[in-house]
Design a protein around this nucleic acid. Structure first.
Lengths: 155, 155
DNA sequence: CTCCAGTGGTTGCATCATAAAACCAAGTTG
DNA sequence: CAACTTGGTTTTATGATGCAACCACTGGAG
């Protein structure tokens, strides 16, 4: 079993997320999908990746419920890949990755784009972690608690 | 070159982030480091990963300025791996990954832990994206702008 | 209908990364 | 100083990745 060590059974939600989108291409595919790309060829030419890898990744993302295949859209008989709500839910992850790069990259001058508020054209604020009551939290202000395990319902 | 396609030269900050921590183990190592793990053996036994891989990953994280080697701490002559500010800066990424899993995982009952506000013991709020003036932004409220740059891009 | 270009993949092969286990050297302990 | 622990490296097997070639289907021109 020299497999890629799947984290499916792991109790850590971070590991579980990585199991779905923790490879080199998945998040980039999702990024392009958020930009509106839908067709196989669009992803392939935009990302410049091998078609077989793209094929595998798209299938994996569909299996994970992040993308769904839609039978049409512009009339042609081809298939499209569209984000599900679960897929669109990755947006904060992408923003966090982007902001981390903006803040800590060794060569920030190579970063080509800025995420801005569409209305004002100004950069978005850094993501903040807040408590239920709105207090700003630092990492040190948080801790992990075991989840209250409730009885399993309908196996 | 069939290499792992490094995204170092890419202008996309997401790709640049993934280049540093986009593999299966790096973010989990960082997660453990945020929990206070410092020693090689601690990471190895907690994550259950092969020692050679851990060795390579730790070196990579050090090269990327995410971890730094500290010569001691408890008196022993061994070496420790501690997070740099850049490493601690990944916290929002981990929170985003965690929250995505909490919100969309197909088997949420398998998630073992909850991130809580230490003071109140209550779960932290979802990360929010806000404009400079504080308005809450949805993905659709944002757009990408080319960065103001004086340097020519590679043709 | 036939031919042909474009789209959307799959297959083969070479190379790289990963994993498990064996091995090893320095540090620490008895 | 002998034994054990820590912190790795080496070896070997196998899975993943990348490129190129190939193939099926679509849509359009003739």
């Amino acid at each position: 079993m020299v497999k890629r060590t799947s984290f499916e059974g792991d109790g850590c939600p971070i590991a579980r997320s990585l199991d779905a989108l923790g490879d080199w291409w998945s998040l980039l595919i999702i990024r392009e999908a958020l930009f509106g790309l839908r067709r196989f060829g669009e992803f392939q030419s935009k990302l410049g990746m091998a078609k077989n890898i793209l094929s595998v990744r798209l299938r994996s993302l569909v299996d994970h419920g992040i993308l769904a295949t839609a039978p049409a859209s512009d009339g042609s008989a081809y298939q499209e890949y569209v984000l599900t709500p679960k897929g669109r839910g990755t947006f904060p992850i992408l923003v966090a990755l982007r902001q981390w790069s903006e803040e800590f990259d060794d060569r920030p001058e190579e970063i080509a784009t800025v995420l801005v508020d569409r209305a004002k054209g100004r950069p978005v604020k850094k993501l903040e972690m807040r408590a239920e009551d709105g207090r700003l939290l630092s990492p040190a202000d948080t801790t992990l608690k075991p989840r209250a395990t409730r009885r399993r319902r309908l196996a």
